[in-house]
């Protein structure tokens, strides 16, 4: 196993623990926005897609990269926007009732 892979594994395991710690504290009311928000975050693959499509030449790898950018951007933009839309509804209630 190469060094980078091993470091990646460390980071992965530690980040999982951070995730478990935070997410168990999230109230059930927010579970749907959590899911769509987390969804948007998993669109971070966009970083990989950008690298894959960087040359802009019509090679197979670049074309695959372009498709990946489209998928990942749908995920990122769609996810964050729909989460915001939901959370806005929760926010309005606050103002109304107070």
């Amino acid at each position: 196993m190469t060094g980078a892979l091993l470091v990646g594994l460390y980071v992965f395991v530690l980040a999982m623990f951070v995730g478990f710690e935070i997410i168990t504290k999230i109230p059930p009311t927010l579970h749907t926005p959590l899911m769509s928000g987390a969804n948007a975050v998993s669109g971070i693959t966009l970083v990989g897609a950008l690298i894959a499509a960087r040359t802009g030449e019509s090679t197979i790898s670049s074309l695959l990269g372009l498709a990946a950018i489209i998928f990942a951007t749908i995920n990122v933009i769609g996810g964050f926007m729909v989460t915001d839309r939901m959370l806005k509804m929760f926010g309005q209630k606050k103002r109304k009732s107070s």
């Binding site: 470091v7 990646g8 992965f12 980040a15 951070v18 987390a38 998993s42 971070i44 990989g48």
Partner: peptide
């Protein structure tokens, strides 16, 4: 994908989503 690119941001955010 983070492991493919050895990119820690992908690994961290992916793990957060995985845990969630």
């Amino acid at each position: 994908t983070g492991f493919v690119l050895s990119n820690n941001v992908l690994i961290i955010s992916g793990a957060l989503v995985g845990a969630s």
